[in-house]
Design a protein around this nucleic acid. Sequence first.
RNA 1: GCAGUCGUGGCGGAAUUGGCAUACGCGCUAGACUAAGGAUCUAGUCCGGGUUUCUGGGUAGGGGUUCAAGUCCCCUCGACUGCACCA
Length: 804
Amino acid sequence: MSKEYSPKDIEQKWQDIWDETGAFHASDDYTKPKYYALVEFPYPSGQGLHVGHPRPYTALDIIARKRRLQGYNVLYPMGWDAFGLPTENYAIKNKIHPKIVTANNVARFKGQLKSLGYSFDWSREINTTDPSYYKWTQWIFLKLYEKGLAYKSEMPINWCTSCKVGLANEEVVNGVCERCGSPVVRKVKSQWMLKITEYADRLIRDLDLVDYIEKVKVSQKNWIGRSEGAEVDFRLTGKDDVLRVYTTRPDTLFGATYMVISPEHPLIDKYKDELKNWDAVTEYREAAARKSDFERTELAKDKTGVCLDGITAVNPVTKKEIPIWISDYVLMSYGTGAIMAVPAHDERDWAFAKKFGLPIIEVVQGGNVEEAAFTDTETGILVNSDFLNGLEVKEAKQKITDWLTEQGIGHRKVNFKLRDWVFSRQRYWGEPIPIVHCEKCGFVPLPESELPLVLPEVESYMPTDNGESPLAAMKDWVKTTCPKCGGPAMRETDTMPQWAGSSWYFLLYTDPHNDREFASKEALDYWLPVAWYNGGMAHTTPHLLYSRFWHKFLYDQGLVPTPEPYQKRTSHGMILGENGEKMSKSRGNVVNPDDIVREFGADTLRTYEMFIGAFDLSASWSNEGVRGCRRFLDRVWKLQDMLTQEDGYSKGLETRVHETIKKVSQDYESLKFNTAIAAMMALVNDFYKAGRVTRGEYRTLLILLNPVAPHITEELFELAGFEGRIFTSSWPEWEEAKTVEKTVEIAVQIGGKVKATLMVGLDDEQSAIREKVMTIPAIANALAGRNIIKEIYVKGRIYNIVAK
RNA sequence: GCAGUCGUGGCGGAAUUGGCAUACGCGCUAGACUAAGGAUCUAGUCCGGGUUUCUGGGUAGGGGUUCAAGUCCCCUCGACUGCACCA
């Protein structure tokens, strides 16, 4: 009898062996076939590892380990995205320097990750808060500045009232701060901005080059929000001036019965003197300005507005005079801040027109515009539209846009929802922006030789209410000399956002110890693009989009070899508490991975998290489920006692083994870990039923299971006396011909109902099977006195007889 | 409101993509081993009626296509996830 399975005794042992032998170090031999597997590096929070973390890490660990066994040079790295607010807040509360907090958290995280036995190449560990790291973050920022893609601008930004920090659009969710849930208000500040909009088109177009799960592509497209339409100029009645609008439906121009401009539109002040209802207009504008974004969207459905009494516009095709309204449903930040309203064919315009009794003119036939706006663009035919009558929407768009262009009053136009990236944060724990403000020269970038610009030690990390970073209080540091003219200058005191360091970290892993450049050309050429990148859905818009943007920029500068950073992107589901709710301290349903490792072992935790359900869906934790996975590993352990001396596969189980190799190999690739594990459980059950397992079968099982449960399988491999280690072995092959049984049981149906089963040879002819079928008593009885109309045989599956 | 995904035992979830629904795991029941079992092994477990070999129903509800539907089409209900006045 073998001794009992005790994870405690073997897991540390194998982790040490992997460390000492450098088993998982990626090789710098660039002639080998390579594979770059990547998981999002964590933010090392004070709470330590959450059971959610191991899910994606284990999944790609499985891929990485399998690839190594298949002969690839695998890069599977790990690091720390360590700048960020929680660390800073913790530092403030406990009066410890963020650097120390970070170091402690990293040590904790690293210990936890190591205890789970991941095959990360720890020799390539990186940390975004190391000056040697952020030197290159600053360097890339300066490149962006040099190329005109970083600029400073006075503009209203999203300001979190609690974090006291400006936020990017991507960080505002439903009008509140993504991180703390506090209200976000508008605050005019001078901000560093990155011109991500310059790349909007390519960020959409190049999604065709990559293999991302559909959900991710869709949300990237939605966020960028490309729309095709036209800009059209409406002449103001009796004036030599125009009001320019943007529309995606130029075909409905004949139905434009009024116009709406945003309350912030400059036209209002320009014609202030001619407005007879200035008081009402002012009141409306002030009310709109007071509303936060949140309120503006909350009250979305109820339309409000004021008609400008004193100026009107002329519809360029109907020549009719139409009123101009102001309303906050038109946003100054999109298009031209003005629209032509076509109530018959736009839901918002329809609601507005109904409320204020404005005319609704049908120009596309197909609905009842008195009941609702008809917005279908596929089926409608143009009416009431002079030279557009009878055309389909698509043709009409084309024709009217050409006509507007000829007349010089309009042109084709593409717009995006995407805004430039607000890149300044008024906090301490981030990368300093390497720019000085010189009285004479304006903004001057630091020369490369002065990088990194290291974060100075400050007395207090507290942010201030006046919207200045804690660095602003460091008068000695702020006061400096201009690198260009030597005159007096001030340093920029805002820092970069959390997303800066993570926008390029995957490049550094390819060559992490290089101090001349962020990574050598050879390393980048060899390793890029990342073959498989897994990360949370929550990072689809900020991180994934930002890093694609930076990568494309670097590509344009000839600094990276590929237009896209990641070839494949997948996403994992969340792990919920036992009650099906999100895990949180306040709900009291948090599971600590350390406890699971202590009680059941790392292999059990890994197996369970992979078995819990479909990888991309959220799943609820179950302690009983964990126990079941431990039971499975116990059963694998005890197979030792059933081991025979034969090397190959036994006759009775040969097909089962080949079938399982195929299933497991394919399921790992498509993230169906739950069914891969189920297949191995079923195989183990078969061994138990047989009461024996050959050495050949056993060895194959151990290698198949190794990526999921690496410690126990290495131990059993050694105990059985197989040559070498699993990590130096190779992945088993299956023979297609041997994956299917030659004799199979088929169902015999009459009219689609199963009446009997029958053993047949897989390659038997239908006629031979028919003979056997007809001799089955149940079938013969059921068919007595009936006419057979049709017979269908599906090879190896079913024999169906249709009778009347 | 719009878009998308989904709805399968007591529970987590399978189903070669149109071919014997409920694999695998949990839980439960019985038996074996045992001083003992919250360990292990064996057997059973979709629901109802007869219980040996039978029989009817069954994948949210309703309708349809098909020899055959969890899978395809239409409607209704419910859940989840995005987006949310982007003209």
